[in-house]
Nucleic acid binder design. Structure first.
Lengths: 198, 198
DNA sequence: TGCTATCCGGATCAGTGGTCCATATATTCG
DNA sequence: CGAATATATGGACCACTGATCCGGATAGCA
């Protein structure tokens, strides 16, 4: 890549970051281009879709969340690790207003630029969940996909101005449900058959 | 209102109904107008905004849900009434793909055409919740706003193609959390929690 | 029949994401 | 250093969106 191209790319990325922070992920691409003193075509060549732009912007944070999951796995109890990590995920996603919907769509669409990152994130969460289940502190009738959906759901809540004030409490409610289900049903020993059917 | 105007209005409304059923609430208004053999301006005169169109379309169903809450209050136990009604709300909202976001926005915006309907719905839910709390079968640390947010959250889940398969189970998880928090009484037989299924 | 208040919808506007291509420029070679 | 070439650029353009305007068609009535 030519030096000027790289410079332009980085500049656009930085501008896109602040624009999205201000107006959410649905901000007009033309606006971003304007603010970066760049043509729309240039922006679209570097980032062919909004997802691609968002992926380039969030890639570092995705990696950070994945790494954090690994750290928590060693430094915290299974229960704390799971709850802390999920809380961080929700809080982080909420910083990028509107990203939740794109991520929910991306995890099912292999062609999306965000797909790989979402899959990785889900895997990290699944590991923490599995560890908590092994330790008997998380209910056994949910899996990584459920956890991903729960995170998306809570993140979406924080995205809605009218509902956001309740997001904190409802996080606790949901977290309690994921953890208490284990205690009630008891340690995994007995059969692991789904405690409530699916 | 002139007779031809009324006829046009009703026709547009009917066409909008099927168009939304097929493509979700974000369907192009121009498409609806085309399918109704009507100019876009005509559609927009009868329904100045998308919310207004949706409100006219859902008004009857809103009323139905409100009425159903009243019926359940008399015909079912506080616990069943709450769970059944919330489940119906979620299922119903999911029929109109994308409506959840509009409703979440409308409940905070008094100028939205959907505002009144949403407020009424929230009040109906709050009554059922209060009744369940009085009966000691629902936790006391949530209120009508929380319930509305929970419904919206679960409805949104059903709207996302990638997450919808998990919506059913996660409904049970959330419902269980709302009910079990009430009184951690009784060792709740280990087999089938009567918690969230209805 | 004619008259008027009302309604209609094509034309138009500013906005969106996306594509094309003549132009400008960085890089490399003589 | 100058010329050739490969590459990046952004204005012009497209189809689409919701929204508005206004000349013309029409319903309802006398």
């Amino acid at each position: 890549m030519r030096a000027d191209a790289r410079k332009n790319r980085d500049h656009v990325l930085a501008v896109a970051g602040s624009a999205i922070a201000e107006q959410g992920v649905e901000v007009s691409l033309r606006d971003i281009a304007r603010r970066a003193d760049v043509g729309l075509a240039t922006l679209l060549r570097h980032f062919p879709t909004r997802e691609a732009l968002l992926d380039a912007l969030l890639r570092a944070e995705f990696d950070e969340m994945t790494a954090k999951a690994g750290e928590l796995e060693e430094s915290a109890s299974p229960e704390d690790a799971l709850v802390l990590w999920v809380r961080d995920c929700v809080a982080w996603t909420t910083e990028y207003r509107g990203a939740t919907v794109l991520m929910a769509a991306a995890i099912k669409d292999p062609d999306s630029a965000l797909h790989a990152s979402c899959v990785t994130l889900r895997a990290a969460g699944a590991r923490l969940l599995h560890r908590a289940q092994e330790a008997g502190v998380a209910r056994h009738d949910i899996d990584g996909d459920d956890l991903f959906a729960l995170i998306a759901m809570l993140a979406w809540l924080g995205d809605q101005p009218a509902l956001a004030p309740r997001a904190g409490r409802l996080f606790d409610v949901v977290a309690g449900a994921v953890l208490e289900g284990a205690a009630r049903v008891g340690p995994a020993a007995s059969g692991g058959s789904g405690a409530g059917r699916g």
